[in-house]
């Protein structure tokens, strides 16, 4: 399992190829890529700046991945989350899961993303034409995490 918090962009194809290299038991690879949108709550987004809490963020992500591995029979998991200033269409997050069969891979990928949204210490600040604003947490994210 690998967890990375970084400013740099990532190459999804290369990361996924690397994740399943030399593991012939893998029969399924599921992934999720989160991307910066150009519109949020009716405002045009110029930049999105992501802040984290070094030390705790990595620990929280490792905890989430650990929970997924206890729950499903997985071969490997990769989580990459970017921080710093991003623009619309930039990639923010990658979750990739390998397993023998698709059911585990799909479920674990969705669980990790839902848990990450409510448990991993990251905060988004948007720059819109009207100025800067911190993004507010959404109740729908709590509901998505609670169903697991």
């Amino acid at each position: 399992m690998t967890v990375r918090v970084q400013q740099e962009d990532f190459d999804v194809g290369r990361e996924m190829a690397q994740l399943r290299a030399n593991t012939p038991g893998v029969g399924a690879v599921a992934s999720f890529v989160g991307v910066v949108r150009d519109l949020n709550e009716a405002a045009e987004i110029r930049t999105l700046t992501l802040e984290h809490y070094p030390g705790m963020t990595e620990k929280a992500l490792e905890g989430i991945v650990g929970d997924a591995k206890r729950r499903w029979d997985l071969c490997d998991v990769l989580v990459i989350h970017r921080v710093g200033e991003l623009q619309p269409s930039d990639q923010i997050v990658l979750v990739a899961v390998t397993s023998a069969h698709r059911g585990e891979a799909f479920a674990a990928c969705q669980f990790i993303m839902d848990d990450l949204k409510t448990r991993a210490p990251f905060w988004k600040k948007e720059l819109t034409p009207a100025g800067e604003r911190w993004v507010e947490a959404r109740a729908s994210d709590d509901e998505a995490a609670a169903r697991w």
Partner: peptide
């Protein structure tokens, strides 16, 4: 101390 998280 921090506000509710908004990553992902």
């Amino acid at each position: 101390l921090f506000p509710p998280v908004t990553g992902g």
